[in-house]
Amino acid sequence: MSDSNTSAFTNPSTFILQGIPGLETTYTWISIPFCTIYATAILGNITIMFIVKTEQTLHGPMYYFLCMLATIDLILCTSTLPKTLSIFWFNSREISFNACLAQMFFIHCFSAMESGILVAMAFDRYVAICDPLRHSTILTNRVVAKIGLAVGMRSAIFVLPYPLLTRQWLYCRTNIIPHLYCGHIAVVNLACTDTQLSSYYGLFVLFSVNGVDIIFIIVSYIHILRAIFRLPTKEARLKTFGTCSSHLCAISTLHIPDLIASLLRRFGHNMPLSFLILFANVYLVVPPMLHPIVYGVRTKQIRDRLLRLFTHKET
């Protein structure tokens, strides 16, 4: 099959994922950390969900949100890493047009959901610290479920136009995607028609979803810090702030690499293409691996349950 086509066609039957140009001979070595990341993400997130499910003391809003985050992370890394590993191991670069659009939707939808759940967790910390007496009455199981549903619906509604718009463009330049997965802009750039609508809509989603989420998180933590600094003793302030440390680490693992990736896409024109592609994949799959590690290490209840689990097995 030819890798390119010079005549216009609305829906190409397949795309070709180019991989990482110039590093083809090192794919076996590159696959090792990617495979390790995937295995760690699966094991870590399933462990978190198992612990929360089996430990009655963890049946609370923060841990329900953590289970939602673990589920999202599992789906997010599974939407990209199996295909990435098949490219590294079997040179399986072809992906059908519909599968490409599906992958695009899952990547962007669950990335937005991940950001939304972190906002929900920030709200949980805000209520727990600023209005602790009403925490159990404000964040009931019903409210937590509604928040999770709202986050999912918001993400799906905002991201659904991505594949719908991408489907309508004419593709006549090439069907080679210079990437390891079907990102929105990477596919849209292959079209030979005016795709400004897709570009503008992508910016709209960026500001309406990620931008608004970051603002909500910042406002929440401004109120949280004000409440913490009003506490009478240093020990109380440190203990209260410690309840936010896992959430702050989770935010950092998601938004800092996302910010760096955005800057590299706009200003990293002199950077090697292989580095840009590698970083774009790393920042997408590393948070699903780090989130369960962060919460497992930083959250005492989960850490103690893990220790009891392994100690019981040894005995």
Rank of each mutant, 00 (worst) to 15 (best):
T253P: 03
K53G: 03
G148I: 03
A102F: 05
L69A: 04
R154E: 13
Y201K: 05
F105Q: 00
I251Q: 06
I20R: 13
L118E: 00
F204Q: 03
S92W: 14
L180R: 02
F65L: 08
T36D: 06
T78D: 05
V286F: 05
K239W: 03
V127T: 08
I256W: 02
S136K: 15
L190K: 13
S245H: 14
Y126Q: 08
T84A: 05
V52Q: 06
G22D: 13
L81M: 10
A99T: 11
S199A: 11
T80N: 02
T47I: 01
I32G: 13
I138H: 04
T137S: 13
E55C: 00
N5K: 06
C244Y: 05
C67H: 09
I218R: 09
V119A: 03
C249I: 12
P161V: 02
T28A: 08
V285Y: 09
Y64N: 07
K239D: 10
I222F: 14
Y221T: 01
E24P: 07
C192F: 15
C77V: 13
M49P: 11
G242A: 12
I218K: 12
I176M: 06
S7F: 07
P178H: 07
L76F: 02
V119E: 02
K300M: 15
L225Q: 07
A156P: 08
N281V: 05
T240C: 12
H108N: 06
C130W: 03
T299I: 13
A122G: 01
T25C: 09
R266A: 00
L225F: 08
G211K: 13
I215R: 05
N45F: 10
I177Q: 02
L58D: 11
Y38A: 04
T299D: 11
T36C: 12
N210K: 01
P161F: 00
F207V: 04
S198H: 07
I176K: 04
I42C: 10
V212Q: 10
T25V: 13
Q301K: 10
N175P: 00
I37A: 07
Q103M: 06
T40E: 02
S246G: 13
F267I: 06
I48G: 03
I218T: 10
L306E: 02
I107H: 01
F15A: 09
M49L: 11
N141F: 14
F229S: 08
I138L: 09
S4T: 12
I37E: 14
C130F: 06
A8R: 03
L139Q: 13
R230L: 08
I157L: 08
